[in-house]
Nucleic acid binder design. Sequence first.
DNA 1: CGGGCCGTTGAGCGGGCTCAAGACATGTGG
DNA 2: CCACATGTCTTGAGCCCGCTCAACGGCCCG
Lengths: 242, 242
Amino acid sequence: MTQSIPLHAFVEKLARRRVLSDRDREALFALPHVVKTMRRHDYLVREEEEAKNCCVILSGFAVRHKATRYGARQIFSIHMAGDGVDLSNSQLGKADHNIQMLCAGDVAFIPVDAIREVTFAWPATCQAMWYDSLVDGAIFREWTLNVGRRDALSRMAHMLCEFAIRLDEAGLGATQGYELPMTQEELADALGLTTIHVNRTLKALAKEKLIVRTSRSVEILDWARLAIIGDFDSGYLHLESA
Amino acid sequence: MTQSIPLHAFVEKLARRRVLSDRDREALFALPHVVKTMRRHDYLVREEEEAKNCCVILSGFAVRHKATRYGARQIFSIHMAGDGVDLSNSQLGKADHNIQMLCAGDVAFIPVDAIREVTFAWPATCQAMWYDSLVDGAIFREWTLNVGRRDALSRMAHMLCEFAIRLDEAGLGATQGYELPMTQEELADALGLTTIHVNRTLKALAKEKLIVRTSRSVEILDWARLAIIGDFDSGYLHLESA
DNA sequence: CGGGCCGTTGAGCGGGCTCAAGACATGTGG
DNA sequence: CCACATGTCTTGAGCCCGCTCAACGGCCCG
């Protein structure tokens, strides 16, 4: 029998999407899973691969990304502890994008079939996962708006705001500041910019006394102005607290 | 009792995502719904609104979009007959984006609660809708990659390819050409460009003998080259035929 | 026939890119 | 302890894709 602790954050996150009964929770905790410790840059899924597991992040961070034929890479979202990060690739058959660890961390692998069976037997769990996927979709849309219609400064500010709120919600950070284990190159791939311009944009935000960036962490000096510059409204994250 | 014909394309689309039994189909056909004829530019849902219905498009086209505080608009996806276009807003409470008709057409409105009840009672229908939302998510991601990492010519070509394939799948067009009821301004909002640059980009594609654009339709002269220039691979659409 | 809406074209500008180089860490082996 | 490699961050200079501003033409419809 597997331990029930590892999936705790995942189940709690689902329970925030849709009310779950005790028996729904039990069914989720009973999901068979294997925990593996992944290193920075390890892939959880590769594009074109037949995904056989759903991955739940227990610690660390992962990104979804895909590249054009010419190698230009776009990061679509960042995931953190408690996120079930591969419901998409695994349910749809062949993966259409990559999922890669941003830093070392533990990941639980759950066989796809087990997810299918639980969601078939326990309708509330299916609705919870569906709703969770809908929130993921909302985040993708906001990301598109960010990349398509905001300038570099605004884009960066928006993304920093999103992380602050999501980390806060997951109990992993605060709106005053947080660990952000991304290199400038990774930030560039997330924002549709070049590394060089990310560097200048971060400097510009620091010069405006909005943030202080030290090695791999961010301190937010003026949340209100950062949110205005980033045109940030947390509605699309669909948090209860909002 | 409502007619069962209107939802036919919608149910068939769901059945392509996940095998449905006859009883699952019956439950879906029995969904209460009201059919309304909408005009061009009518809103199906507005941002910030409490969405009380799911909208299924019966004819015509609709877009999802959202604007920044400064009025710059981004279109996230185009929807066509058979698409259940508002599962997201309605299940998540307050809408985080707008859905608007691109041209006149009929739309079936299904109360949210009815969807909740059917998906709770019939697990396969819940999985089907979930998988459909996952495909929507894949389309959003590709859109982000398009806007973030491809130049104007490639972006336009990619979008034209996506429409061709999706219209073909929905039985509404062909890869040789199709009706595209979008103005250049709407294309611009979809691609993260300006109207003027869209005009020049379309001209550039025509000059390369890749397409011919007449009023509101597109003829594709050289699919193979268009797909190469657009860096298009239909994998992310997760069609069976692929 | 006049007023929107939409498409078209030109001229000039600028945000972000490209190319190039150097600074500063961290790790590894000798 | 140093020598060296590798990855990341920083800075400068110049250029180009796509934007802005401006104007005009075609079409539909009242």
